[in-house]
Design a protein around this nucleic acid. Structure first.
Length: 173
DNA sequence: CCCTGATTCGC
DNA sequence: GCGAATCAGG
């Protein structure tokens, strides 16, 4: 892959939008994050507000079933578009509009999908949750992307949804 | 360990 | 100019 004007332009755009080098590399395709960083420097584009950083970590996969409660309860509040940026990683984290909307229709336990990192297919790694959200034919489509550990393809939440034992299955009715 | 950007240096 | 290897840090 060579740096065509278009690719450089896209690089400039994404970099200015605050995406990390690895994410930009993923979207450009054919280049490593190092390649992106190197190019950024050569273009003298470094430093965009927040310098050095790596606070994009959604820790705690929970070791016992107790932890799961937290996220479920929290999201139940309101559907404010909490545009939380995780440090330098300007991932636009928001609550899924659809799932939250159903909340008032059925105030049952575990109905809300936890925060999604809204990753594109190319951004998935071996450790990101591959639970798909939305219609694959629309722009809205994305993957959960939260930490999936190494025990499976999904995060703790989606693992429970996907591999729900028949005994625990509550008939949605 | 995961990830982040920064620098170096052989190609 | 390019980018893998390496460094420094959260």
């Amino acid at each position: 892959m060579n740096w065509t004007d278009e690719r450089v332009e896209l690089l400039r755009k994404l970099w200015s939008e605050g995406l990390s080098a690895s994410q930009i590399a993923a979207q450009l395709g054919g280049v490593s994050r190092n390649a992106v960083i190197g190019k950024v420097h050569r273009l003298k584009l470094s430093g965009r507000g927040r310098t050095t950083a790596a606070p994009a970590r959604q820790k705690k996969a929970a070791s016992s079933g107790a932890t799961a409660t937290k996220s479920t309860v929290r999201a139940a509040s309101t559907h404010r578009h909490v545009t939380a940026s995780i440090g330098a990683t300007a991932l636009q984290v928001q609550f899924d509009a659809e799932p939250v909307a159903r909340q008032y229709l059925r105030p049952v336990e575990n109905v809300v999908v936890p925060i999604s990192r809204r990753l594109q297919l190319v951004e998935l790694t071996e450790r990101t949750c591959k639970w798909p959200n939305g219609d694959p034919l629309t722009e809205e489509f994305h993957f959960c992307g939260n930490d999936a550990g190494e025990s499976g393809p999904y995060c703790s939440y989606h693992s429970r949804v996907a591999f729900q034992p028949a005994s625990e299955r509550r008939r949605p009715r």
